[in-house]
Each structure stands twice: as C-alpha cells, then as structure tokens.
Amino acid sequence: MNIGQASKATGVTAKMIRYYDEIDLVRPASRTDSNYREYDDRQINELRFIKRARSLGFSMEEITQLLSLWRDRGRPSREVKAIADRHVADLDARIGEMQAMADTLRHLSHCCAGDDRPDCPILADLTEGKEPSDPVKRRPSFNR
C-alpha cells in the first residue's frame, strides 16, 4: 500500500504517518524504486494501534511503551495494565480539574446579571487571579 492507501485504511493522515516514521514510532516502510513508501499489513496494524491509542488519550511516550509491549509476544500483561491504570488515574484527575472549572464558571455565570450594567463577577474573578479549584476562595456577591 502506498501512503495514501495506508492513510485511508487506518484513518491516520499521511502527514502523521510521515511524522510517526520520522520519530521511529512505526517500523520503517519499505521504499519503491522511485522512493515512495510502501506499507504492509504489519505497519497498517501498527498505525491502527496508534490511532486507537491516540483516541484514548495516551501520550506519545505511553504509545511507544504500549507498541513495544504489543510487539513483544512474551510480555507480562501487568506492564500493559500498569500503563493503562496510570493513564486512567491521570484522566480522572483531569476530569476533576475540568469539573471544578466548569462549576466555577457555572457559578460565576449565574452571578452575572448579563445586562447593560458594567459590574461583572466573571471579570472580577478573572482579575483576582486565583485558581478555580481554590477551596478557600469566596465568590464576589453582586447586588442586582
């Protein structure tokens, strides 16, 4: 398969396939006499693997580790599980942070009259410069 066909078969753009090749994430493609890349089933499977791992939010470093483990048929599954568990913990932490941001913005939006007056608790909060997850922070009260 040429790079266009590989892209279509995997959902990975040709630009990203070239990038993965440059950083040695995928095994190098063979070359035709005219120096075009040719991809075999093994490389197509690797690209699909990477695409799926990216869709689950794994970092490039994690994907490199997972690919290495996937290629090693004698690997202990505990190593794969450890990578996945660390990733889940990271996702859970980020979800918590994002929920705190959404809660803060929801509260600030609720406090904002959204009318022609210049008073705005959203701008006042941004001016204070505190993190949204700061539990000590009290929201400004604006009289409507």
Rank of each mutant, 00 (worst) to 15 (best):
M1I: 04
M1C: 08
M1E: 05
N2W: 02
I3F: 01
I3E: 01
V12I: 03
V12M: 00
I17S: 09
I17N: 11
I17R: 10
Y20Q: 04
E22Q: 15
I23F: 02
D24P: 01
V26T: 13
R27Q: 13
R31M: 08
D33M: 05
S34W: 05
S34K: 15
R37W: 08
Y39P: 08
R42T: 08
R42C: 03
Q43E: 11
Q43G: 08
F49W: 10
K51S: 11
R52F: 08
R54W: 07
R54E: 09
R54I: 00
L56Q: 08
L56Y: 13
M60Y: 08
L66I: 04
L67V: 01
S68R: 13
D72S: 08
R73I: 03
G74C: 05
G74H: 14
E79I: 00
K81W: 05
A84H: 03
R86C: 05
H87R: 10
A89M: 06
D90N: 09
L91C: 12
D92S: 12
D92T: 06
D92Y: 06
A93E: 02
A93Q: 03
G96M: 07
E97R: 15
E97D: 15
M98S: 09
D103M: 09
L105M: 15
H107D: 14
H107Y: 04
H110I: 00
A113P: 11
G114A: 09
G114D: 12
D115Y: 06
R117S: 14
A124R: 14
A124Q: 15
L126N: 10
E128M: 10
G129K: 11
K130H: 13
K130G: 02
S133P: 04
K137S: 05
R139S: 08
S141F: 10
F142A: 07
R144A: 04
